[in-house]
């Protein structure tokens, strides 16, 4: 009964407009889009279980937090302060190469977010190179 009742509690599942997306080489962009964009962009592919409470609450929270910390769809805002963009890229390199991203619990239901060692190297290498370019 409670499970049915909580379905009526509204949750905000939206994909806002995209102010200015990240520009990156196609292999990097495609990998980021497949593995990271569901939580770190305004192009979230909302999963079917994201429509059912209480799972929906967790999904919405994860996406909201992900977008707050790093939003590829609003990359243009970071680049307005180049040192911030450079710092974000260094963090991407660190989080991806260390395996902190994507979180293990996320990859259980989202195998597309599991990055191979080669994909991790590709993203980290690009991010460090781009961070250095912006910083100089």
């Amino acid at each position: 009964m409670a499970i049915v009742a909580i379905q009526f509690i509204p949750v905000q599942r939206s994909n806002p407009p995209i102010p200015g997306d990240l520009v990156a080489p196609a292999p990097v962009k495609n990998t980021l889009r497949a593995a990271c964009y569901d939580c770190h962009s305004n192009r979230t592919r909302w999963p079917w279980y994201g429509a059912l409470a209480p799972a929906s609450w967790l999904v919405v929270h994860e996406v909201s937090e992900g977008r707050r910390r790093l939003n590829f769809s609003d990359w243009i805002s970071y680049t307005a302060d180049p040192a911030t963009a450079s710092h974000k890229l260094e963090e991407i390199a660190e989080f991806v190469s260390s395996g902190k991203m994507a979180p293990w619990y996320y990859t259980i239901l989202h195998p597309e977010a599991r990055l191979s060692p080669a994909q991790r190297r590709m993203i980290a290498s690009w991010a460090r190179r781009e961070a250095g370019r912006i910083a100089n």
Partner: peptide, 21 residues
């Protein structure tokens, strides 16, 4: 700042300039 999309490390004794829109 999440809202301003700014994130900068500041070392001890350092002064940084953050551009705001």
């Amino acid at each position: 700042s999440f809202e301003l999309r700014r994130e900068r490390v500041v070392k001890p004794g350092e002064t940084i300039t953050v551009n705001m829109p």
